[in-house]
Every structure is written in C-alpha cells, then in structure tokens.
Nucleic acid binder design. Sequence first.
DNA 1: GCAAAAGTGTTCCAGATACACCCATGT
DNA 2: ACATGGGTGTATCTGGAACACTTTTGC
Lengths: 205, 205
Amino acid sequence: MFTVHEHRLNLLLVPRMHERYRYQWVLPGGPVQLEEDLEECARRELEEQTGICGVYLEQLYTFGRVSRDPGGRIVSVAYYALMPPDKIVLRQPAETQGAEWFSFSALPVLLFDQQEIVATAHRRLATKLDYSTLVFQLVPEKFTLGDLQEVHEIILGTDLDKRNFRRQVLALGKIEDTREMRRDGRSRPARLYRVKHSGPVDIVR
Amino acid sequence: MFTVHEHRLNLLLVPRMHERYRYQWVLPGGPVQLEEDLEECARRELEEQTGICGVYLEQLYTFGRVSRDPGGRIVSVAYYALMPPDKIVLRQPAETQGAEWFSFSALPVLLFDQQEIVATAHRRLATKLDYSTLVFQLVPEKFTLGDLQEVHEIILGTDLDKRNFRRQVLALGKIEDTREMRRDGRSRPARLYRVKHSGPVDIVR
DNA sequence: GCAAAAGTGTTCCAGATACACCCATGT
DNA sequence: ACATGGGTGTATCTGGAACACTTTTGC
C-alpha cells in the first residue's frame, strides 16, 4: 500500500501477529480463503489489518521460492495498492491494528523476501507512471499540476521540467480544469484540475 | 509454450489426463511440489509432459478466480515459454506424452479459463517484443533479418517496413554478421546473423 | 519589496515513418 | 526470362528535451 503524502512516498506496514517474529513490521496480507478470489483476499486482508478499502489494487508478482519463509512453504501472490493522500485519515485508529505509514526511503528491515517484494512494487510503480494513468490514483479528486508533478518526481526520484511536464499531461486529455483555485498560504494560487472520465487505470502510449 | 514455425505462431498443448475432461487439450502444467520453486515446477511439468527443457520461461500472471476450475479451488501461477523453431524436433516422441503444436490462430476450445491465460500470454509477448530482446528466444542460433522480421510480423499481426525494421534492429547493436549466407532455394542468399552477447532477455528502450 | 510557487513558448534534436528500386539466385 | 526474397538511402514528421522569465499571492 503506497501513498504520496507530505513530499514523501510512504508505505504501509503492519505488526506481525504470528508468534515467530511477533511485532516485526510486515506487509499486510494473509492466507486466501477457499471461497474468495485472489484480489478479494488482498482487499479483505488490507481492510482487516489497516481499515483501508476502496483503493486501486493490482496484481504484482507471485513469490514462491521454497525457502522464502522459514516457517513453511508459502507462496505469496503479491498485490500493490495506491491511495490518495486525502483518504489517509478517514479510518479510525481502532480499526487499524497498529498499521503505520513509513517513509519509503527509511523503511525498517523487513522480514524474509519482503524487501524484494517492495522493490518490485516500486519498480512497477515507477515504470507504469510513464505509460498509464496510474498517477491519478495517488492524488485527491481535485489537484494541481504541481501536485501531479510532485508525485512523479517523488516516485521517480528525479526532477522534471515544469513546462514539459504540464504540456505532456495536458496533451493526454485526461484531466480538465475545475475553474477553482487552491490558495495555499504564501504563494500564488494554483488551478485545480480533476480527472475527466474517472475510470480505471488505462494504458497510454 | 510458444514457437514460430513455418510462418505461424504455434502453441503447445497436451491431452489432459485427469478423469474429468480426459484427453481435452490443455496447457502443460501441474501442482507445485513442496521442495521446488515455482519456475522449477513449470520447467519440470513442461519437461514431463512435452520433453522440452532449456527454454526461456517467464512468469505471466496468477489466475485464482474461485470458480475457474469446477473440480476444485485451483490457483495457477502461469508461465509462458518461448522456443526457437530448430529445437522443435529435438525430442523423441516417446517423451512427449501426446503433446502437439497448434496454430495459434486455430486453437481448439480450451478448458476453463485457459483461453484467457493464452490471450494474456499473447498480449504480453506482443507488447514485450517492442521493448526487449525477447525475439531472440524465438529464432535459431543463426538467423536472417528476414527471419527476425517475420517473427515480429506473425506475433504482432501486422506488416512492417523492411528498411525501417532492419535499421532499427541493427541499431540495437545486439546482433552481429556471421559472414555466412543461407541459400534458400529459389532466391538470393541471405546474410546470417547471430546474437552478440547471448545473455538473458533484457530491456531496451 | 521579498519570498514562494504558478504559469507560460520556442528551439532543437533524435528517433519513427513513409517510400521504390536494384540484386543474386533457382527454375 | 522470370519469379522470389535480399538488400539498400533519403526526406519528412513527430515527440521529447532543453531552457528563463513574468505573475500572483502572503508576509
């Protein structure tokens, strides 16, 4: 579960509840039930462990090395999820079983191969930003072009040219001007945009 | 398992051996064993059922819909494989448990969601041709530029411009002239090329 | 007036595309 | 001679990259 908030890419971790390695930080997840689809399982575990629901979710990769979990043979079908920053505080702390956001650049040491899973997800995220509309899953309903650019820069880890970025994102034709402005303290107000045909993530280019 | 042979994209199917739907054509595969990695499992099942080994293999997607197999809850971690046409006949028929190549454009009706799996694999193949060196897994050690172009055209289902194709593939710098020619019956002999640093598939662009 | 972020165009270059004819061989 | 696929160069278009100054607000 990723979000971009306060100029940082954040990853959500939960304390592990199994007896071995109890309270180590781990990715949310758990065993699939007989009567649920894989994505349903991912959504259910995410909601049970963090209270989050209704986010963008995409299958990432299936990790199945024999020895990846010393406690037994576990095959994990990993999903990654994206959430806009304005939903972060919607849920009551009571529902979130100790889940916490961590800055992606300062993650705790993760168990087993979870570091690899996280790295794979981040790579996918960065790659897919460039040829899909994924980024709109990481901004609120109304956002400025500066917001959008910042999300790109934080995930890619590089600075982008403002004029080129704006031209390109507008040329995609996926967003429209709301005719509203955001006054943001001590600088010039910025135009707010919204996604035009707010659909699922699609592939461009 | 895909190959391009005699101007067609071909897919390898095996007769199903479970009692329900016995002898229906299905994708090779089977249950993972406790002490093997997922890719090992794919290779083992492929070899057991078709005699094929040593091919390019890549994880495709994990299919886990609850009702995808009416016989029970099966989660399938699908892989796709590529093979050059000159290896097709290397294996003894005795080892191939009735496996047969089918033209991709005239596949038999497949069981359950296998049609979806095949479609997903084909989409991945076509997409990845354009930004990786995947195509070299589908041609023999020595090949002509015409061979390469034909593989692209067959998989993409479109005709490509000969001069542009040649310029682009040579510009990648991945292949070199063997200084040999292939005499091919009733037309001008063609230069044979080989892959330069025959490594795994890598990403270009 | 100064700090801070918003907003705005043009030039340049590289890579993609479109396009037509001659060549070497077998029959 | 003709049929078959091999081989070659150029002009054009398009999308990406580089690049700097003015505007609007709060303090």
